[in-house]
Design a protein around this nucleic acid. Structure first.
Lengths: 239, 239
DNA sequence: CGGAGCGTTGATAGAAGTCAATTGACGTGG
DNA sequence: CCACGTCAATTGACTTCTATCAACGCTCCG
């Protein structure tokens, strides 16, 4: 299996052989986290950043009144908390949604890299910028789309992101996320998520059984979700 | 008047005299945009990035059904579209909310800087990471807070961000943003924004007249908004 | 076997949107 | 100087969307 971070980066720009090696070396020190366990915790001041090799994880925030909101879902190839390299204290936690294999990269290593590898640094920077673009898109969908629109948009986004790391088969992919977690991600109640999934099924846009999503009609789904993948920067470019 | 980007960066880490000079040089090439005008437009592929010296601007997205959502509000000192340096095509526009003075920085210059100034590069990177942290916070508030909570949170955030660039007097600051724009930023209707402002006034948390906001009770407002400023990274740190 | 967790459904309550109209400030042209 | 149009703020009435509460079935696992 190809290293997913390589897939993620090489989808956006060409890497030199030396840069490829550096990425591969970064994946050397691996750790496994079982589902439901926190990978990084709010208040931590990490000395290493982690990159997701397999599994799904989520960035979540707990409010004073106990409510939870997921602000990002991460898939293999995502450099999950790369930002903790420059941001001091974590203002949120990251949890494994499924069993996760992650690579731990010491901040000292990243700092060194930022001194000696400008192009690779720009690509890592880019990776955090794409995360930010995804955040912005979530703001837009949560502000202006109906529940069904939001959910459809998330499905489109996941489809495209998983495609990059070769986790899509034809029109179908696994999204091992419970309806409770989806509610926390979209800012909706579990009950409403359930009804919204049903709505998408009834509109014959998707099939969804046992975490397996099949897109019945990509064109209609895209239109329904007002999905435009430009923000994911899926085109290779000189950066 | 001190250069606001300097204030913005030096709040987060110390700069060397040489680095200060580079920042000041970057502000040399200035442009003025009148209120309501687009500074960058969706679909553009800019060859320079702009940094806000004075005025307020907003990043906005137009949906296929014509709805508008603002995904970020920028204040002086913000390097508004620094990300266009690495992200190819703009998937959204940036508009001047008030008359704006911006400094234009060519991407060639930024690229050169990324080759020769690793520390400064990390600080610019940091600045985009703080933007992303703000995005995440907006996702959280829009997902899990009431309209009044969201608005109160935005007021707290603006208060802190404007404090950094010395645009706060005592407990009071100008926020020259119409209720229509606030609605677009919080994903609420104008009518509801109006009622929500009234609610905050009636709870005696703020005063708000002619774009001038006065915080009547900071402690209550913070609690009401569940505001925790950690995400703004207001502590100087070695980065 | 029984409990826990998730998915599902129904009934009701509450939050926010939409439509419509009024007011006041401001700027422009006659 | 005033009439008029424009734009933002405000308010009321009504509708729609989503949350909440409650209950039940299913599956997995100790």
């Amino acid at each position: 299996m190809t290293n997913p971070l390589l897939l993620h980066l090489e989808k956006r720009d060409a890497l030199s052989p030396a840069e490829r090696d550096i990425i591969l070396e970064m994946s050397a020190n691996q750790k496994v986290f079982p589902a439901k366990v926190d990978i990084v915790r709010e208040g931590d001041n990490p000395t290493e950043s982690c990159m997701l090799l397999s599994g799904f994880s989520a960035r979540y925030h707990i409010l004073a009144d106990g409510k939870r909101q997921i602000s990002a879902i991460h898939v293999p190839g995502d450099f999950v908390d790369l930002h903790s390299f420059l941001l001091a204290r974590m203002d949120h936690s990251v949890a494994a949604l499924t069993d996760c294999r992650v690579a731990m990269v010491p901040h000292t290593h990243l700092r060194e890299l930022s001194q000696t590898q400008p192009h690779l640094t720009r690509l890592l920077w880019l990776s955090t910028l794409i995360d930010a673009a995804i955040h912005r898109r979530w703001i837009v969908t949560s502000g202006r789309l109906s529940a069904a629109g939001q959910l459809a948009h998330l499905i489109c986004e996941m489809f495209c992101r998983l495609q990059v790391v070769e986790m899509v088969e034809e029109d179908s992919f696994r999204l091992p996320i419970s309806q409770i977690e989806l509610g926390d991600a979209l800012g909706l109640s579990t009950v409403h998520i359930n009804r919204t999934i049903r709505e998408l099924r009834e509109r014959d846009l998707i099939r969804w059984q046992n975490s397996q999503i099949t897109i019945v009609n990509w064109t209609s789904l895209k239109r329904f979700a007002q999905f435009e993948p430009i923000y994911l920067n899926l085109e290779p470019e000189r950066r």
